[in-house]
Design a binder for these strands. Structure first.
Length: 853
RNA sequence: GGGCGGUUAGCUCAGUUGGUUAGAGCGCCACAUUGACAUUGUGGAGGUCACAAGUUCGAAUCUUGUAUCGCCCACCA
């Protein structure tokens, strides 16, 4: 074994070993009797390659999988990628635009552009898959899925047709979010909001119009059909129900209805709202309530004014129309006020341009219509299902419920080309939903494609060969899934929707929500900041095990965390520590590692009993941070610092070393799979590399608990630490062999002498000494000729003051009747024990001080 | 405007049902080249757990309020 662990020399080989063993495929597990335990990997988007967030996800998922696999379950982790319809097309188009192709769709046409996007997607995909491998993720590659492959497309079409026939998917004329740059709709959940300074104009439609309204988008006001006021507003009550004909400088006069609506805030602005039915979501809702007011779209999908805006405006870009209309208002003395305000602007998250509400014919999923045969709406089904899913941390359950409660119909049609084509066919007035072209001549398929979440929402069963049922039956619902909180709405909710509709069951039993990784300053990683870190580069430098450990340690579920190099370096050091412990153990003589247990053995086995129990519980609860911290501490501060040091003492050996190491490797394997595989093979725990992943999970009961030995060893530890501290405080070089008088058993004596570098019980007569009291044992450290007694006097006084302080608190408790009455027995007994021990310590320290005086 | 979360050592963060004198890593100070490891070892300094009130024998932990930072949602024209 090399002096230091070098991940670069081992990881590729171990990955290959895992590939050959195929244990990640449940059909190749040594035991086929385990309980099925399926987890679906959230498929990374092929918009790009993996970033650190994916490294976190893979670490979480794989640690979970490896633990459950070792406990004997039939584990299945399905890997995959997401074609990410609009985001991917946007990425490719934006790249082309940067290269000077201003209108890629016009330039290349549908077929050619789709081919270009496919090429880009395939490239990203293959990079992503190799990155997942390097992260050590034990997924079943034979079941690799892609949201846009043939199998998944078939499921998408099936489900669409079924929902269409059930009346849950409909085509409707409604206001949707339109991106001019992207020439497509966008769902409500994919808008980003930005605060921008803008001008708020207050004006009247005409001189004789009695009510003033305000707007930040004057050009849309050419399409106003009503003014809404609050029914209780005494200023405007007289006008409610009336109509006014106004000249807005367009070709034809406008008819403005004055309507009453509770949603109008009479204290805001003029207390009246100009209703632009066609270009505002809220206004469109009002139009649906009051259809008599009418709707006049004035802006086209290209961002230019429509003929309905009037001859003077027709064809003008909206920005020019804005100027022109404001000028007209000004010239006609209708402009009452111009005010600079900060306004929340909705932007397309992928194309970055302002979103325009536009009325259009689009496809929607109706969430408020009863599902045939279920007697409930999709919304109700989603709420019910949500209650059956365990979400960690719990607080996100509320987030989910709130969102579902406010859910609107979901616009699923997109006007981009990269994605599942809507399986709807038209011929004249006939409309048929079908995966394949209906029989007969003259059928035309809908030109639009489906929202990407329409396909990824079926991920939990589309990956299992649905609709053929055997596989679905075994592995659905998934046992567990992990995801970032930012996709609870986008993805989790949609998986619940499709699973409850299609299969009548929840998609997964448990959801583990993680936060996002930020940089050292707490900023999000982003392209524009240029603070991105390539996980593969981190792996190249520190190794996969170190990366995995560094993103899991010290992080609570659902919380964001910061990523920086020092953390990875720390994890790398730990991995190297483990390696060196193994190296030491492997150098021990074989006969030293068998035979009756020594005191350090009894102590470490007792500790191991507790550690196995703690770590198992932590993994069971997906407390990855807890598991890694317990193991970090045990391996470094107990196994290495005490047990291995004790093992160097010839008379004591360390017979359980192999046993402890074997157990530690198993416990650590889910977190640090590579180094543990290498060591397991080196030590002969496994026949071949790649087998540790199916080793049996350790059982706490396998390790004998010996409280008596633990106490004895604890005294040794405290004694050694105290003597070392004494040397430091008296500035005595550590190598100085002090004489110490103390009553101890043989094993303890050997340990203390070696570890504290002292000689026990040699010199009986002496002039002065320091006193150390631990666990009822008094040790006299002889200081003749080494240090002045005055120093010890000061040290003792400080020590006594400290013990006194703690005694006070304990005594107050014991003298408190209520404490004695109410505290549980366990706590009381413990407190009394400590009290007695402190009293003894105190007495001995005081006596010692007296002697000096 | 509504909802949620954070505030614990110089820094980054754990702290699972309330129970010894609140922990870790990094950083800092001092010491150490001892036969697994300098990707090291040993010892140490450093915290009134944001603040206030309350519940309790006992609060970092539960309740209420305040401050402050952050996130999400919302049709503020």
């Amino acid at each position: 074994m090399d002096k230091a662990y070098s991940p670069q020399d081992h990881e590729a080989r171990i990955t290959q070993a895992w590939d050959e063993k195929k244990y990640s495929n449940p059909d190749h597990l040594p035991s086929q009797n385990g309980e099925p335990h399926a987890v679906m990997m959230p498929p990374p988007n092929v918009t790009g390659v993996l970033h650190l967030g994916h490294a976190l996800e893979n670490s979480i998922m794989d640690t979970h999988m490896r633990y459950h696999r070792m406990t004997g379950k039939r584990t299945l982790l399905i890997p995959g990628t997401d074609h990410a319809a609009l985001p991917t097309q946007a990425r490719v188009e934006n790249n082309l635009k940067k290269q000077g192709i201003t209108n890629p769709r016009q330039e290349y046409g549908r077929e050619k552009l789709v081919a270009m996007i496919r090429e880009y997607a395939e490239n990203s995909k293959s990079t992503i898959l190799s990155q997942i491998k390097r992260l050590g993720t034990s997924c079943d590659w034979s079941r690799l899925a892609y949201t846009f492959d043939e199998e998944r497309s078939r499921v998408v079409n099936d489900v669409f047709v079924r929902m269409f026939n059930d009346g849950l998917i409909y085509r409707g004329y409604r206001v949707v979010n339109w991106s001019i740059a992207g020439q497509s709709t966008s769902s409500d959940d994919e808008l980003v909001y930005e605060e921008r300074a803008t001008t708020l104009y207050t004006f009247k439609y005409a001189k004789d119009f009695p009510i003033a309204v305000a707007t930040v988008l004057p050009e849309t006001k050419l399409g106003d059909t009503a003014v809404a006021v609050h029914p209780d507003d005494t200023r405007y009550q007289q006008y409610i129900g009336k109509t006014f004909t106004v000249d807005v400088g367009a070709e034809t006069p406008r008819t403005i209805h004055v309507i009453a609506d509770e949603s109008v805030d009479m204290n805001y602005g003029t207390g009246a709202l100009g209703v632009t039915s066609a270009h505002a979501t809220a206004d469109f809702d009002m139009y649906q309530k009051h259809p008599e007011i009418g709707i006049i779209p004035v802006i086209g999908t290209d961002g230019r004014m429509l003929p309905a805006a009037g001859k003077a405006y027709n064809g003008l870009p909206f920005k020019d129309a804005r100027k022109k209309f404001v000028q007209w208002l000004h010239d006609n003395d209708l402009l009452i006020e111009e005010k600079e305000i900060v306004h929340n602007v909705a932007l397309s998250d992928r194309y970055g341009d302002e979103i325009w509400p536009m009325p259009m014919e689009q496809w929607f999923v109706n969430v408020n219509k009863e599902v045939p045969g279920k007697g409930k709406t999709l919304k109700q089904l989603m709420l019910e299902a949500g209650a059956k899913i365990t979400i960690t941390p719990e607080r996100f359950a509320k987030t989910y419920t709130n969102w579902i409660t406010n859910l609107h119909d979901w616009c699923i049609s997109r006007q981009i080309w990269w994605g599942h084509r809507i399986p709807v066919w038209y011929r004249g007035a006939e409309v048929v939903a079908s995966a394949v072209k209906p029989a007969g001549e003259g059928w035309m398929q809908d030109a639009d494609t489906l929202d990407t979440w329409f396909s990824s929402g079926m991920w939990t069963f589309s990956t299992l060969g649905y609709p053929s049922s055997a596989h679905v039956k075994t592995f659905h619902p998934s046992a567990w899934i992990q995801m970032g909180y930012e996709i609870i709405y986008l993805w989790m909710a949609r998986m619940v929707l499709f699973s409850t509709y299609v299969l009548g069951e929840i998609p997964f039993r448990e959801v583990y929500i993680h936060g996002i990784l930020r940089d050292k300053q707490g900023r999000k990683f982003s392209k524009s900041l240029g603070n991105g870190i390539d996980p593969i580069q981190v792996i190249d430098e520190y190794g996969t095990d170190a990366l995995r450990l560094s993103v899991l340690k010290g992080v609570a579920p659902g919380n964001d965390s910061r990523f920086y190099e020092e953390k990875v370096a720390d994890a790398r050091n730990f991995v190297n520590k483990l390696w060196n412990v193994a190296r030491f153990v492997s150098q021990m003589k074989k006969d030293e590692t068998t035979g009756p247990a020594t005191l350090p053995d009894q102590w470490i086995l007792t500790r191991l009993h507790d550690v196995v129990a703690e770590v198992t519980e932590a993994y069971e609860k997906n407390q990855f941070s807890q598991a890694s911290e317990t193991l970090y501490h045990f391996v470094w501060n107990e196994f290495a610092d005490w047990y291995v040091e004790a093992a160097k003492i010839e008379s004591l050996h360390a017979r359980q070393a192999m046993n402890v190491l074997r157990t530690v490797l198993a416990l650590l394997h889910p977190l640090t799979p590579f180094v543990t595989e290498v060591i397991a093979k080196e030590m002969g725990f496994t026949q071949e590399e790649g087998e540790l992943m199916v080793a049996e999970w350790p059982k706490a009961e396998a390790f004998a608990v010996d409280h008596e030995s633990t106490k004895r060893f604890a005294i040794v530890q405290e004694l050694v630490t105290s003597i070392r501290a004494l040397k430091t405080s008296f500035r005595i070089p550590p190598s100085t062999q002090l004489q110490v008088l103390v009553e101890l058993g043989e094993e303890e004596r050997a340990l203390v002498e070696k570890l504290a570098r002292v000689t026990l019980g040699q010199k009986q007569s002496h002039q002065h000494h320091a006193t150390i009291v631990v666990g009822g044992v008094t040790a006299l450290v002889i200081l003749d000729g080494v240090v002045d007694i005055e120093a010890e006097k000061q040290r003792l006084k400080k020590e006594i003051a400290e013990v006194e302080g703690s005694l006070k608190g304990i005594q107050a408790k014991l003298n408190n009747e209520k404490f004695m009455q109410s505290a549980p027995e366990q706590v009381r007994v413990k407190t009394q024990e400590i009290h007695e021990e402190r009293l003894v310590t105190m007495a001995k320290l005081r006596e010692s001080l007296k002697q000096i005086d």
